[in-house]
Amino acid sequence: MDTVTVNDIQLAYEIRGTGEPVLFISPIIPDGFVPLLAEPALTTRSRLIRYHKRGWGGSTHTPGPVSVADHVADAMALLDHLGIDRVHVAGHSTGAAVAAQMAQDHPDRIATVALLELSLLSVPAGAAFFAQAAPAFEAYAEGDAERALGLFLSLAGGMDRDRCRALLDERIPGSVEQAVKDADTLFGVELPALAEWRFGPDDAAAIRQPVLSVLGSETRPLWVEVAAFLRSAVPDVEECVIDGVGHLLHIEQPRPVAEALARFLARHPITS
């Protein structure tokens, strides 16, 4: 990956393909979009940009607090460096929070927003999810980052730890090891920032761009509730459900996710 210095930090990023630019924002697996960005439905028509948020992977690790607004500022600085005026934005989980905030803060520069299971803790199921994640937080507090990551990813992904580890090892080799290295960011920076992020009905209604909400049919109640919230509050939202997958939908089944995203982008070109 290439690197660029913005906002006094380094961001690692990669670009592949040509066409209208699409910025992909990952959550706790910084290379989580790699399988999706290899799909021909996207690579043949778009300029695909992925990067590691600060605190993740090859980007600078800074101490907290690092807010969603900080991530927005970093992403916009990266786009400025690349000379991109308007862009499609796609985010997964906590990365989708950054994408949603970008759409609110920079409506003139964000053409469309794709939210792959946006993580929003203010819905009723948010508290229940965090209660279920208690063993992961306990393992992290005990200094066992690998076990903590395994428990958290298993819970979020809706699969047992062995299956989750096998999936990630197969689709994104080295991703689990990198996630363990980034455990301090997840538990000490990212999740606290998400808990502080406010995204209510008025915020959702402020997003005037076309929005694609993507959901796995087997996902946790948290993301089902978030999808219902988006359906009720975002003015221009389209929905897509990917059969047979949970929260790691774009890693489990990248092809249908890529095809759904490609159709959405084709309906809403930047040049229109």
Rank of each mutant, 00 (worst) to 15 (best):
V211S: 11
L222Q: 11
A228E: 15
Q209T: 04
T185E: 10
C164R: 08
E196R: 15
A228D: 15
C240G: 00
V245C: 11
Q209I: 10
V245Q: 09
F229W: 12
M159Q: 15
F187R: 08
V176P: 00
A205K: 04
P173V: 12
R220C: 02
D203C: 03
A195T: 07
H247E: 12
P221I: 13
P221R: 04
T185I: 00
F199H: 14
A227G: 09
E177S: 13
F199I: 04
E177Y: 07
E239T: 11
A166L: 00
L230E: 08
Q209H: 13
P201S: 11
R220M: 13
V226P: 07
E196Q: 15
V176W: 15
L191K: 03
V180E: 09
V176M: 15
L167V: 04
L194R: 01
A204I: 05
D243L: 00
L168S: 02
A195H: 11
E225Y: 00
E177D: 15
G174L: 10
E190K: 05
Q178R: 15
R163L: 12
P201V: 08
M159P: 01
P235T: 03
A156T: 13
P235F: 07
V226Y: 09
S217C: 00
I172C: 09
F229G: 03
S175G: 12
G174I: 12
P173W: 13
W197Q: 06
P221C: 02
V241K: 01
V241Q: 04
D236E: 11
G216I: 03
A205Q: 11
H247I: 09
W197D: 07
L215R: 10
G244I: 04
D160K: 05
F187L: 10
D236L: 09
R171H: 02
F199P: 04
T185Q: 10
P192Y: 07
R198S: 13
R198Y: 03
V226K: 05
A228C: 02
I207S: 01
T219I: 06
L186Y: 13
D162H: 09
A195D: 12
V234H: 06
E239D: 07
D184K: 09
S217R: 06
I242A: 01
A204D: 00
A179D: 07
I172S: 07
L167F: 05
R208A: 12
R163A: 13
R165L: 08
F199N: 13
G174S: 07
S213V: 10
L167R: 07
F199A: 06
R161D: 08
F187Y: 14
V189G: 09
L168R: 00
Q209E: 11
D203T: 05
V234F: 03
E190I: 11
H247K: 04
A227Y: 08
D169P: 00
